[in-house]
Amino acid sequence: MDRDALLNLLRLMLDSRFFEEKTEQLFKAGLIHGTTHLANGQEASQAGLCAALDDGDWIVPTHRCHGFTICRGSDPAEMFAEMFGSVHGLAKGLGGSMHMPDSSHWNLGSSAVVGSGVPLATGIAFWNRFQSVGNAGFAASTFSSPKDYPKTPVKNISVAIFGDGASSRGSVHESMNLASIWKLPVLFYCENNHYGMSASSDRMISSSNVASRAGAYDMPGETIDGNDVLAVYEAVRKAVEYIKEGNGPYLLEVMTYRTKGHSKSDRRLYRTAEEEKLWADRDPIKLYERKLVEDGILSAKEIKGLEEERRAYIEEKANKALEESTDRLSPNDVEDMVYATTEDRS
C-alpha cells in the first residue's frame, strides 16, 4: 500500500471515531431524538472493509452504521442532518441514526431488524450476477446442479454486514445457502464485537466461532483480528478477489469490541472492567498510529496534526447540519413518500 492509502485508512478511522464522539455529545445535550448505537472501538473493521471495496460494490450495514457510512464516502453533514431529522439528511429525516442509505455511495442502508439486511445484500449479489453473467448461464437452476454452475467473473460484489448476534438468525443461514448454491458474489462480513446487547457470543453461538459455519455452506470462512486495520484490509481484498473471479460467497469474521454500551441506556453489567481495559489497550486507532510511527510513515507530531484536522472537519459538518436542522418535511410530504410513483426507478 502506498503512503496515501495508508493515511487514508487513518483518516477514515479518525472521522468515524470523532463522528461517534460528536454524536454522543449531541445526544447528551438533548439535540438528537431517539436512540443511537455507537461503534467506538470498531473503526478498523469499518475502515478496513470499505477501503478494500471498489466503486460499485454495495454494502448493507447494521444498525451500528455510522462508521461504515462515513468510510463508504457519505458526507458527515448529511449524516448528522439525518439524526437531527432534517430534510437535508440522507433519508430526508425519515430514517434516523440506524438508517442512512446513500445510493450514490453504494450503501443500501441498514435494516434495524437484526439480521434482515443479509438477504437484501444477497439480493444485490443476485442482481450483480445477473448483470455480469447476462441472462445466459445464470438461472438455469431448473437443470444444472449448483456444482456445475459456470465460474464466471463478476464486476461487483455486495457485502452483507452482520453482528455476532445476527449470526443466529434463520435469514442469515438461508442467505448463505442460497448464495452458495447460486455462486452469488456476496461477502458475508460478520463483525463480531462479542456481544449482542448483553448476550455474549460465548453463551449464544454453538460453534467456537462464526466463520467455522462457512463449511456447512461450502464456502471459505476466515476469522481475523478486527482491530488491525491492515489485516482487515488485506483479508477483504483477498475475499473480494476470490468472489470477483466467480467463485461464489465468502465468510469473513472480524473480531473486535464495542467500547461503549449497546445503545444509550446500557449500564454494561454483563461485562467486567478488566475485560474493557484489555480491549481499550487494543484500541484500533492507537494500534495503527503506533505502527505508522514505527514504520516511519508519520511522526507523532504529524499524527496529532491530522487528529486535530479531522476533529475540526467533523465539528464543522455537525455545525452545518445543526444550523439547518429545522428544515423539515411537512406531514403532507411524509404521506407522499409512502408509495413510489411511476417515474421512480431504482
Binding site: 438477504p119 439480493g123 438461472a139
Partner: peptide, 23 residues
C-alpha cells in the same frame, strides 16, 4: 430458461433476496 428460478424451501431468505434485487 434464465428467468425461472427454482429455490430451496427458504421463503424468508429468497423473499428477502428478491427485495434486495428489486431495490
Amino acid at each position: 430458461p434464465n428467468q425461472v428460478i427454482d429455490t430451496p424451501v427458504s421463503e424468508e431468505g429468497f423473499t428477502g433476496m428478491a427485495v434486495g434485487a428489486a431495490m
